[in-house]
Simulated assay, not measured.
Amino acid sequence: MDFEHYRAIHHHLFQDVYQWAGQIRTVRIAKGGNPFCFPENIEDQANKLFDGLRSADFLRNLDALRFANQAAHFLAELNAIHAFREGNGRSQLTFFALLADPAGHPLKIEKLKPDEMLGAMIASFDGDERKLASVINDLIA
């Protein structure tokens, strides 16, 4: 459950679509005028984020509210890193599902509302992780 694993997920999901699947992007990108992590910083920032996840015991043994809050922070940071040119959201969700299950909070993916999740991710990029925590809490309830 480290950055290499996350990259392997992206590769697995997109190997038939993108020649560069699983490879860290080398170009600067932004959405809505907001830049994501510069490519020269991606690996260091991602390793730091995943080291923190490991230090937090992969969010195991947390009640639902603490899990949702900590998971929201992790996902917000992972999204801000935006390691790949395309497919970040799908890779994040896949990794998150793999994280949530052994943490004792399996996702009820059928409850996911894409527009609501997107809005929560945008709010988290602007520093407000409350909506994302609420969406996660709904997915694990």
Rank of each mutant, 00 (worst) to 15 (best):
E86W: 02
D51R: 10
A103F: 07
S55A: 15
D126N: 12
V135C: 01
D16N: 12
D63T: 03
A80Q: 03
A46R: 11
A100E: 07
F14Y: 13
S124W: 04
F38N: 04
D16S: 11
A21H: 02
A46T: 08
I42H: 05
D44E: 14
S124C: 03
I9T: 03
S134K: 15
E129H: 14
I42T: 13
L62M: 12
K31L: 12
S134V: 08
Q19P: 00
A141Y: 01
I29A: 12
R54T: 11
A8T: 10
F74K: 04
H10F: 07
D16K: 12
L49M: 08
E86Q: 10
P35G: 08
F95Y: 13
K131W: 08
K113P: 00
T94H: 06
A97L: 11
N88L: 08
G87I: 04
H11W: 11
L13A: 09
T94V: 13
A83Q: 01
P35Q: 14
A80I: 01
H82N: 05
Q70Y: 00
K48M: 15
E129A: 12
L75R: 07
K108P: 00
P102Q: 15
N47V: 11
L78Y: 01
F125H: 14
Q23A: 13
L132S: 05
F96D: 04
L132F: 06
V17L: 09
P114R: 12
G32L: 11
F74A: 08
D57T: 08
L59D: 01
R25A: 12
F38V: 09
I9A: 05
R25M: 11
F38L: 09
H73R: 11
L118V: 01
A80F: 00
N79E: 13
N47T: 09
N79W: 01
F38H: 06
R7Q: 14
E40H: 11
F36M: 07
R66W: 03
F50W: 15
L49F: 08
D128N: 15
E4Y: 09
A133Y: 06
I140N: 00
H10G: 04
L99R: 02
G22D: 05
R66S: 15
H12D: 12
G52P: 02
L62A: 07
I24D: 03
D57G: 00
P35H: 14
F38A: 14
D63I: 01
E4V: 10
A46L: 10
L75E: 08
